[in-house]
Nucleic acid binder design. Structure first.
Lengths: 110, 110
DNA sequence: ATTGTATATTGCAATATTACGATAGAAGTA
DNA sequence: TACTTCTATCGTAATATTGCAATATACAAT
């Protein structure tokens, strides 16, 4: 096997899982944090920030892009990456909602 | 390769990535949602809720437990799983913080 | 045209994940 | 005790991920 059985889950569940999976690697977390740190989405030097080879970084960027978390605009020679605010918000809101649902229930189990 | 180079990233980055990775599967999202839906952490019947075989569900539960997102108390014959509120809060807060940092910067790039 | 710089793609090896049948252990019930 | 129920673990097959060297592509500058 090895292939996730996505058809048996809801679209929402699959889409949240996809986002979480894309964020499930420290390099990709580091990329997001760097993109936020440099306020104007500076082109290029993400590779220099990470302890990984250029092809590896490129691959991580591709996965973040596939997940919709970042976008990259061609800027002459280099590429200007920046965060898709809405998508980042979406995942933050999802987990906040889960937390507050849990807080309301205030289950005293275990 | 195939092994993540965790040593080159910060503890925070690694721990967030670990949580996100644990949440990066629709079955594990479904498990969390189910645990929240049934207010008292009903034991056992998670398997019946999911379109997966019992060993597979058990494995997913183990990963959520490893990530610290749930805990399971033995309750006679069955096991009572429930969410570790603090850990769920942690990831929600992390992404909310990212979002708000981004909103403040209000970068008008791309 | 050639050279340099920035990024992507390809190909591959090492490792991890997903899924499940078979089986095992632990607790309850007849 | 024997039987059932619930959950975990083992073993294994299929597939995915991670990482990088080598290479390709695209633009810029000389």
């Amino acid at each position: 096997m090895g292939a996730t059985k996505t058809d048996h889950f809801t679209n929402k569940q699959n889409s949240i899982a996809m986002l979480a999976k894309a964020l499930g690697h420290p390099a990709r977390i580091a990329i997001l944090e760097y993109l936020i740190k440099v306020d104007t989405c500076i082109c290029g030097d993400i590779v220099n920030e990470l302890p990984l080879a250029q092809p590896t970084v490129s691959q991580h960027l591709k996965e973040l892009k596939n997940a919709g978390l970042i976008k990259g605009d061609i800027e002459g020679n280099s590429i200007c990456y920046c965060i898709e605010e809405k998508v980042l918000d979406k995942i933050g809101e999802y987990f906040k909602t889960l937390s507050s649902k849990l807080a309301i229930k205030n289950s005293k189990c275990c």
